[in-house]
Amino acid sequence: MTTSLKSEGAQSIARAALLLRTLSTFGSQGAALMQISMLTQLPKATVHRILSAMLDEHLVERPWGTRNYRLGPEVYALGMSVLDVFDVKTIAQPSFDRLAQTTGEAVYLGIRCGYDAVCLDKRQGHLPQNAEILQVNDRWPMGIGSFSLAILAYLPDEEIADIVAFNSLRSGADKAFSKITSGIQKTRKNGYALTKTRSSRGISGIAVPIFDRRGYPIASLCTVSTLDRMKGSYLSGLAAALNHEAQIMSAQYEMARTNPSQAETWRTAIKDPQTPRIAF
């Protein structure tokens, strides 16, 4: 969240990106100007000025009947234009099928979204559905849950510091965030993130990162089982299976990025003699 050392133009872009990431944590309900200012630690006047500019560009909108701000339709449209390049969910399907079949456990796919991790997909395992906490499209602060900790732990230290600071401020005095630093260290040492739910659910999650060619974590694969199963050789076997599929996904992800499939169909519609001419 530090922007003081950037040039004026770069600082404006960094602040706009910070506001977009902050708004993403609030989802469709949006957030009030005061909330955004408090979390970003930017003056209200600065936040209002940047949000007003992004309103004009439809990057941000104000839900009808409220004074809140939320991400706008242009953000969705921009994302759709590179769906074939970053479509981790489609890439993950074969790995999901293999892991679900060989382990019998619940399998999850997570990606980073600003200061959160989002559950993109899951396969139901042998656990009762009401025993599982994480569901598709759920957003959890980075570092909470193995699926997000596996991504957070392998980010650059400066990014980790920003994320932890933001989420600590956002959560108030929640004790969960006081343990994130030790969780990051354990994850880096073990090569996987492991979390346990010591409640009536009695479940445990193990997750590994999926890297791009630079070694930057772009997603995570996670399996969830009971506490009594998640130990010893069984735990080691799950970690090995997850890492194997994560490596396959990394290679497929890079292939999709270098060989995008999306075509400019409008060019064909105009130039192809077999296609009816479009009248203007």
Rank of each mutant, 00 (worst) to 15 (best):
L109V: 07
N243R: 10
K196C: 04
G237N: 02
L149N: 06
R21I: 04
L78D: 09
I13P: 00
L120C: 15
T3D: 11
D97H: 07
Q262L: 10
W266R: 14
E57L: 11
S171Y: 09
T22C: 12
G72T: 08
R62Y: 02
Q41S: 13
I248W: 04
L227G: 09
A241W: 00
T90S: 14
K122V: 10
K122F: 09
R15P: 00
V208F: 10
A14S: 14
I13S: 12
L55G: 07
F147T: 07
D212E: 05
L18M: 08
R98P: 00
R15T: 08
H58A: 14
T102D: 13
T181P: 00
K231G: 00
S168Q: 15
S37R: 11
T223M: 10
E264A: 07
H58D: 13
C113T: 10
V82S: 13
P94S: 05
Y69A: 12
L235Q: 14
T90C: 01
R112Y: 01
I91F: 05
I133L: 08
Y154N: 07
V224T: 13
G9M: 05
P73I: 10
Y108C: 02
H126S: 11
Y108T: 03
G114I: 01
R98E: 10
R67C: 05
I218L: 06
F211E: 08
L5K: 13
I210G: 08
E8R: 14
E264C: 06
M54F: 10
A131Y: 11
R67K: 08
D97T: 12
S220E: 01
L42S: 14
